[in-house]
């Protein structure tokens, strides 16, 4: 089976002032995989996500999506002196590539947020419909004068279909924030899927869920991976979920990747047990 590389993070370092949040991270995600990023609180997982999605420009390093370089930076300005990370010279002098998050999404990388960010004043259906905006071909005039009837109809139809697939059609017209917590998570994932991504980044999808909801989410993530042909890269704390569905796991500690491997390998890796599980195996 030939592996097609979807996401490649290369020597990425993110330094805020004197603090290194992500230290020389390297990782790869192949097509169709579910890869998890784990680590204790403050290990830099969400920062890594924010670098990949363009929220932060990395201090140093590059990110590739399907073989194309999408992000690249090297220490510049004040950071030249402050930089304490590795490989400071690798990217120096090359063009800095720093796309905004919306460009990253349009490339096919969608994400969800650790603290759910839904459009509060909109209904469930409208939340999904908004995500279809980026796939428009109409401009502001054709949209205002309804000359894009076909496109508008397609947006609505696709959103309806997605709602149906995500089993959200019974709450179609409710305000997004009036949904129960678990459903809000589902909706956020559905909204990300509405942008038709190939790579889905989930930031702690099971945060605040009880074991039953976590179990449902586990099945849900597996299902959408198969149904939408997705590649999934996620941050998670719930070990049951991570061990159950991950193909591979990366472990981050104090910004540094300390281990990589299958769930089995990670479970038995002494460094991981020491750093993450604090020596006691009680997952």
């Amino acid at each position: 089976m030939s592996k097609e590389n979807v996401l490649k993070v290369e020597n990425v370092t993110m330094q805020f002032g004197g603090v290194i949040a992500v230290d020389n991270m390297n990782l790869e995600v192949d097509k169709g995989e579910i890869v998890s990023l784990i680590g204790p609180n403050g290990a830099g997982k969400t920062t890594a996500f924010n670098v990949i999605t363009g929220v932060y420009a990395p201090t140093n390093g590059a990110v590739y999506y399907k073989g194309n370089k999408i992000i690249q930076n090297y220490p510049q300005g004040k950071m030249k002196k402050l930089y304490r990370g590795e490989n400071p010279m690798t990217y120096t002098g090359q063009h800095a590539v720093a796309p905004t998050p919306d460009k990253i999404t349009r490339l096919g990388i969608a994400r969800t947020f650790q603290n759910i960010r839904l459009f509060k004043s909109q209904t469930v259906f409208e939340n999904i419909l908004i995500a279809k905006h980026m796939l428009r071909t109409s401009n502001i005039f054709t949209a205002t004068f309804r000359l894009n009837g076909k496109e508008e109809a397609r947006m609505r139809r696709e959103s309806e279909e997605l709602l149906h697939l995500m089993e959200l059609d019974d709450v179609r017209d409710e305000l997004a924030t009036s949904l129960p917590y678990g459903k809000q998570r589902h909706l956020e994932i559905a909204r990300a899927l509405a942008t038709k991504p190939e790579l889905l980044l989930l930031d702690e999808p099971a945060a605040g869920m009880n074991p039953q909801e976590t179990l449902e989410l586990t099945q849900f993530i597996g299902r959408i991976r198969d149904e939408f042909g997705l590649t999934i890269f996620m941050i998670e704390h719930h070990m049951d979920l991570v061990m159950e569905i991950s193909d591979r796991i990366y472990v981050l500690d104090f910004g540094k990747p300390i281990a990589e491997g299958t769930p089995e390998e990670i479970r038995n890796n002494p460094r991981v047990i020491e750093a993450y599980l604090g020596g006691a195996q009680n997952e």
Binding site: P101, T105, R111, R117, L118, Q122, H133, L135, T195
Partner: peptide, 10 residues
């Protein structure tokens, strides 16, 4: 409603 989420929606 939410600039960050809007940006993440492309």
């Amino acid at each position: 409603d939410d600039e960050i989420a809007a940006e993440a929606m492309g």
